[in-house]
Amino acid sequence: MTDNPLSQAEYDAVTDAAAHWCMRLHANDCTVEERLAFEQWHDAHPLHAFEYEYEYEAMLEIWDVAGDLPRPETVAPMVRAKPATPWRTFGIAAAVCAMALPLAAYSGWNLGWLPDSYQHFEANDNVRQVTLSDGSQVELNLGSELTFSNYKDQRRITLKKGEAFFSVSHDTRHPFIVKAAEGRIRVTGTKFNVWMYEDQVRVNLIEGSVLVSSNDAVAGDGLRLEPAMQASYRRGDFTPRISQTYDNDNSLAWRSGKLVLDDLALTDALPLINRYLSKPVMVADNSTGSIRIGGIYNIKELNNLVASLPKVLPVYLTRNKDGNPVLNSIPQQAPKS
């Protein structure tokens, strides 16, 4: 970098050039001469390379959001951290839309292909409360990540990992759709919780009603939940499993920083625990998986729980070849005759 800082106008010119090259290099009619010109521009200043990589990552996010558009086949450069701004991201969205499809007088928004607002949220070490651009409120559990896109005909959440509690702003003309694994939850205004771990999803309805589908490939809007009902499914399930919840249901205890295990078999408890761990705990066999566990735990201290399990359960810890903790049941000795 030069010691002389760039003016805002100079910086904006670099940003515009980076967006231009990001579009041109992925166009079918990009010439060899243009690619050589790009290389010269790219190498002329470190800021040029930095801005191009940022614009490229912004474009990839748009490809992910606009799933109906074709994705460019190219190798992604190294990701650089930089705060996103709406006008930059959606400038790229417009460029991608124009590059990918000849929309003539129509925009991607009018055709329902591109959103007019896009938000990305993560919660790492603390529970996080956020407000979406439509006014809906979302509370994210630890280690959770989601995106929100506002389209002309729908509001779309993609839960990438973790758990979230939604208080959805009512809008019958713009349904609120949460995509989790291969399924979806469709609402117009309500309060509900979505938990996801690997290929497992669980939906708890608090107020209003929702339609839950476990597989986007299956026609129809899915099964309807009423308050105090729960739907669960795994990736690939044809239909979700519906059950009733009760007054002592503890699925929302995470909002108070707690994980409540109510006399669960380890097979059922470990997905709830592993959601918070970098190295998930495994069970050695079905016998170990049937051992039951209970208690109330701080969600920020679940790593300590793993080491303490042999103190409270008839198990001992080993590690598999990938370094995961493995619980093994202690064989019971036969009584002496």
Score class of each variant (00 low, 15 high):
residue 31 T to H: 04
residue 242 I to T: 01
residue 13 A to Y: 08
residue 301 E to Q: 14
residue 216 D to N: 09
residue 172 T to V: 13
residue 131 T to P: 10
residue 212 V to C: 03
residue 206 I to K: 08
residue 280 P to C: 05
residue 223 L to R: 03
residue 103 L to R: 14
residue 108 G to Q: 12
residue 325 P to I: 07
residue 203 V to H: 10
residue 68 D to E: 14
residue 191 K to R: 13
residue 326 V to L: 02
residue 255 R to C: 06
residue 302 L to I: 05
residue 197 Y to W: 03
residue 195 W to G: 00
residue 277 L to V: 04
residue 117 S to F: 05
residue 58 A to L: 15
residue 230 Q to D: 00
residue 167 S to R: 13
residue 47 L to C: 15
residue 223 L to N: 03
residue 34 E to T: 13
residue 221 D to E: 07
residue 12 D to Q: 15
residue 31 T to C: 02
residue 49 A to I: 13
residue 119 Q to C: 08
residue 236 G to V: 01
residue 22 C to H: 02
residue 184 R to P: 00
residue 107 S to Q: 09
residue 23 M to V: 15
residue 218 V to I: 10
residue 140 L to T: 06
residue 146 L to G: 01
residue 291 I to M: 13
residue 166 F to W: 08
residue 118 Y to H: 12
residue 124 N to I: 11
residue 85 T to W: 09
residue 231 A to N: 04
residue 109 W to E: 10
residue 27 A to Q: 07
residue 113 W to H: 12
residue 23 M to S: 11
residue 78 M to F: 13
residue 256 S to W: 03
residue 242 I to Y: 01
residue 96 V to E: 08
residue 222 G to A: 01
residue 197 Y to H: 06
residue 284 A to L: 06
residue 215 N to M: 00
residue 48 H to R: 14
residue 169 S to V: 14
residue 170 H to V: 13
residue 117 S to A: 03
residue 300 K to S: 05
residue 128 R to D: 07
residue 207 E to T: 08
residue 148 F to P: 00
residue 97 C to G: 15
residue 165 F to H: 12
residue 229 M to A: 01
residue 70 P to S: 11
residue 151 Y to M: 06
residue 303 N to V: 09
residue 22 C to P: 00
residue 317 L to F: 07
residue 116 D to K: 15
residue 80 R to F: 14
residue 138 V to Y: 09
residue 259 L to E: 02
residue 241 R to Q: 04
residue 151 Y to I: 04
residue 126 N to W: 06
residue 284 A to R: 11
residue 184 R to D: 05
residue 272 L to I: 07
residue 165 F to D: 01
residue 145 E to M: 11
residue 249 D to H: 06
residue 238 F to R: 09
residue 83 P to Y: 07
residue 219 A to T: 03
residue 119 Q to D: 05
residue 91 G to S: 13
residue 63 W to M: 05
residue 166 F to C: 03
residue 197 Y to R: 07
residue 179 K to G: 11
residue 291 I to D: 08
residue 116 D to T: 12
residue 196 M to Q: 15
residue 21 W to Q: 08
residue 19 A to Q: 14
residue 124 N to L: 14
residue 36 L to T: 09
residue 5 P to F: 12
residue 16 D to F: 09
residue 7 S to G: 05
residue 204 N to F: 04
